[in-house]
Amino acid sequence: MRAWVGALLLLASLGAARAEEVVASLSQNQVSITAFFDGSEIFVFGAVKRYSPPPADAGPLQVLVSIVGPIGPVTVRRKERVAGIWINTDEVIVDRAPYFYANASTVPVREMLSHTDQMRNQIGLPWLVDLRGAPEEIADPFDFRDAVVRLRSSEGLYSELPGAVRLVDETLFDVSVPLPANLVEGDYTARVFLTRDRQVVDSFETTIAVRRSGLEDWIYRLAQDQALIYGLLSVALALALGWAAAALFRYLRP
């Protein structure tokens, strides 16, 4: 009972301290990867709810929108020249890295958020791409971590979009975050942060479900769960097509 009262009091005090709240929504919480999927776009928009005017000495309000895709381990391999040809030799497993990452904000992140708050809220690639340990014989494990960021950035999977968020009158904001065509299935987390004086004022979090749909989904599930049937089906379809072609051309050119 006492714990409950304590928690309620704490919540109330937090509510009082937080004079500004974010209200946000997304254009879609579900992205379907269909056969003709060619990338998509998530439109994030919202408003700032205020109970009292901000203190006169407070810095300007900033907004950050972060969308981060399924997080998992990545195996990074490095090529080396052996006997004249390039061969994968060293291998490091980066323990955690998001597949997709987009950080859109009103101003560059370091100008709107302290280092501590970035770390606390896991904002930015330094926190999200995490290498915990590497084999001892590798002298430069962090080069492998950097490779994840570099390669995924060049594929359009990681992006920093400073200045992309439009903020009107410190009240209304919106941003459109492009999703590339090479997206994978999974739950993506979308977060919105309001900051003042490099500190988080309020935040909002929601999930975007990215799923294969229709034929794509059916083929993928069959290939994973019923591999033998899938293999037989592949052969049967190929044979049917080969036979149809032979029959058709025999009919056309007797």
Partner: peptide, 28 residues
Amino acid sequence: AFTTILHATQNYTVDTMLALLLLVGGVV
């Protein structure tokens, strides 16, 4: 045909959609 089934069941790397598209172009 046998290789297809082996790759499908052991490596999960047979893309039937890709194969059929290539086949349509190929037979013509």
